[in-house]
Computed example of a mutant assay.
Amino acid sequence: MERRNFTKTVHSKEYEQKRFKNPFFESQEEKQKKSFKFLIIGLVLMLIAVPIILLFGGLFELKNNSVNGLTTIPQAEVETEINQHLATKWLNIIPKTHKWFTRPNVLRESLQNKYNFENISVKIEGDELKVEVEERISSLAWKSAGNLYFLDLDGKIFREMLPQERAKINERLGGKIELVAPEDMQSVPILQPTLPIIQDMSEQVVEIGGEVISPVTSEALISFDKNLRSLHIDPVIYQVERPHKPWLRVKTRQGYDILFDGLGDMNVQIAYLNSILIEYKEKLSEISYIDIRFENHIYIK
């Protein structure tokens, strides 16, 4: 009887079950598992690295900013506001110098609230933040509650004066002189030397964008101021009882005051004033005020 080789039979079955393998060679299944593992790790690293590169790698960072269109507001003043906006971080993580998080509309609103421009646009072109502005035309100044403001032709306050500008106005009025660095004084364009200044005697607090005199009164005052200068009268300051009141008093360097109606006919009132100046030519130094508000009734003291 033939003797059976049980060892051979066991090894044969193990071979058929693929239980034998060379430790120096990986199976196809293990290779696939390892490749899949590396793929997952690679994807995770990519998901982490790509946002970091996009957000902090400088590819989308603003390199420069510019401001165009300023006429009276110092360039450095507006640039400081822009830089302060860009210095903040979105969620305290991502700098706003990144184009995706600059938020031009927020910056535009901030600048508009402070300076009340006639027009303003804030846009990103390439790696530059561009701010284009158009200032409101200032023909009048408003003095109230210890502050000085610029008015537009509609009688609305469009911005508060800068310290350098206040110093110039106070110097004209002979008031308290503010200490301002020489370099700051040089950065402000020269103010119109004949800019009419209106003082609110009620000292009411005003807001940017608020109307303090009507457009009609604003236009009349500018016309009246020009006519006074043509008559060789130097206005110092115009005084109004409170906002929206049309009656004004102008104090002159000649020593007398002139009271006029901001809603009245300027040509008629100037004609009355001229006749008084001619009639009292030799006695003007004795006059305290001339009141031409009531058409045919002129009051002199």
Rank of each mutant, 00 (worst) to 15 (best):
Thr80Cys: 00
Met1Gln: 07
Ala181Asn: 01
Tyr256Ile: 09
Pro189Trp: 02
Ile93Lys: 03
Ile41Gly: 02
Ile52Leu: 10
Leu70Trp: 05
Gly264Ser: 04
Asn267Leu: 06
Leu59Asp: 06
Phe260His: 03
Lys245Ile: 09
Gln239Tyr: 11
Gln239Ile: 08
Val180Ala: 09
Leu54Glu: 14
Lys21Gly: 14
Glu219His: 06
Ser121Cys: 03
Glu109Arg: 14
Met266Thr: 14
Ala49Ser: 07
Ile169Thr: 05
Arg108Tyr: 06
Tyr280Gln: 14
Glu295Pro: 00
Gln199Tyr: 04
Ile53Asp: 09
Leu228Tyr: 09
Leu107His: 12
Leu173Ile: 05
Leu140His: 08
Leu47His: 05
Thr72Ala: 11
Gln112Ser: 11
Leu86Pro: 09
Glu219Asp: 12
Val216Tyr: 13
Gly209Asn: 12
Leu191Asp: 02
Ser139Lys: 15
Leu273Asp: 04
Lys226His: 09
Gln186Lys: 15
Ser144Phe: 05
Val131Thr: 14
Arg253His: 10
Thr80His: 03
Ser214Cys: 02
Leu54Asn: 11
His85Tyr: 08
Glu77Cys: 10
Leu228Gln: 08
Ile237Asn: 00
Asp127Gly: 09
Met161Pro: 10
Gly255Leu: 03
Glu14Gly: 07
His244Trp: 11
Leu263Arg: 01
Phe117Ile: 07
Gly210Lys: 07
Thr9Met: 08
Val10Cys: 01
Leu62Arg: 00
Val131His: 04
Gln75Arg: 11
Gln164Leu: 01
Thr7Asn: 10
Arg136Asn: 14
Arg293Pro: 01
Leu45Thr: 11
Thr9Asn: 05
Leu54Met: 15
Glu132Ala: 15
Leu228Cys: 06
Phe224Pro: 01
Gly262Asn: 05
Ser214Gly: 08
Val206Gly: 04
Gly146Thr: 13
Glu160His: 07
Glu203Lys: 15
Ile53Met: 02
Phe36Gln: 14
Ile190Phe: 07
Glu207Gln: 14
Phe158Trp: 13
Lys143Cys: 12
Phe117Lys: 06
Asp152Met: 03
Thr217His: 03
Val240Asn: 00
Lys63Tyr: 04
His244Gly: 06
Lys13Trp: 12
Gln192Val: 00
Leu45Met: 09
Val106Cys: 04
Ile94Glu: 05
Leu91Pro: 00
Gly58Asn: 05
Val240Gln: 10
Ile270Lys: 00
Arg166Glu: 13
Asp257Gly: 06
Arg166Ala: 06
Glu81Cys: 04
Glu16Lys: 10
Glu165Cys: 03
Glu286Arg: 10
Phe260Glu: 07
Pro23Ile: 14
